[in-house]
Amino acid sequence: MNPGYELPLEEAGYSFGFLDEYAKREVRRAILKAISIPGYQTPYASREMPMGRGFGTGGLQLTLALVGPEDRLKVIDQGADDSVNAVNLRHFVEMTCPGMDTTEHTRAATLIQSRHRIPEVPLRENQILVLQVPYPDALVVVESSEARRKTMHGEGDYARLLTRLYEDIVRFDEITIAHRYPTRIAGHYVIDPSPIPRYDLPKLHRAAALTLLGAGREKKIYAVPPYTDAEPLAFDDVPFRIEDFRDAAGRRCACARCGASDSFLDELIGDDGAKSWQCSDSDYCNEQLAVRNPQEAVHI
């Protein structure tokens, strides 16, 4: 977003949350149906937003339909509060929702919009996680016709998706999907959980918080309600497994900054080509740093 750009609030009289009330009600009705049919991609009339589709307009429309002046919003991109997508979206919501508070602390947030990660700290009841989704349909890799995909979803027919996973095992001895791992919700619909790593999928399973997923370009909203089964597709003899971050010697890598060895790590390559690892969730990293080295802790 152009840093000098400001919405002409006084002249045009934008409503709280930028979207007009008809747009909010459209999104809200779709959200309630999405919760009632867990994992079903509920179609909705996705609005044009003042940013390109693919920059999180689906997540943003969800956030704007939910948010009120009493909320504390956290926006993250790949786990960090300070990367460009997160900063832009947070700035936009701050500008259009006067009175609403923002935070970088997962525990303090009532509403969390995220791209590509679920926070490390387990979410509580009544916190809401909004995920930005580029490709909502897990079946798109095996069936190009949306009409046929809708029938397959309705019938719970995921045989071709399982075949695809099986072919991976035959060729590589491993299911090679690193993110967007197909996950079955409440025993029926299989969703594309957005590009979160496998590491985050167990956090969806019977979580205390509601997760809403919004695909603005594809005009779909779907949900994983609280206390709902979320099972990654797998086989009895090849169970689902997550990234384990072990080095060649079999030791679990730790974050070079805070020392945590229980978080999802980003690989960093230094100028000399040496590899190091750092927490992807910046709030979690700061929290661990404060616990382990109180002197070095960043005060924010």
Partner: peptide
């Protein structure tokens, strides 16, 4: 009014979630 509807919707959201 929009602000009241936002609050009512959050109650609806909670009711459907739980």
């Amino acid at each position: 009014g929009p602000m009241a509807q936002q609050r009512v919707f959050r109650c609806l959201l909670e009711a459907f979630s739980y």
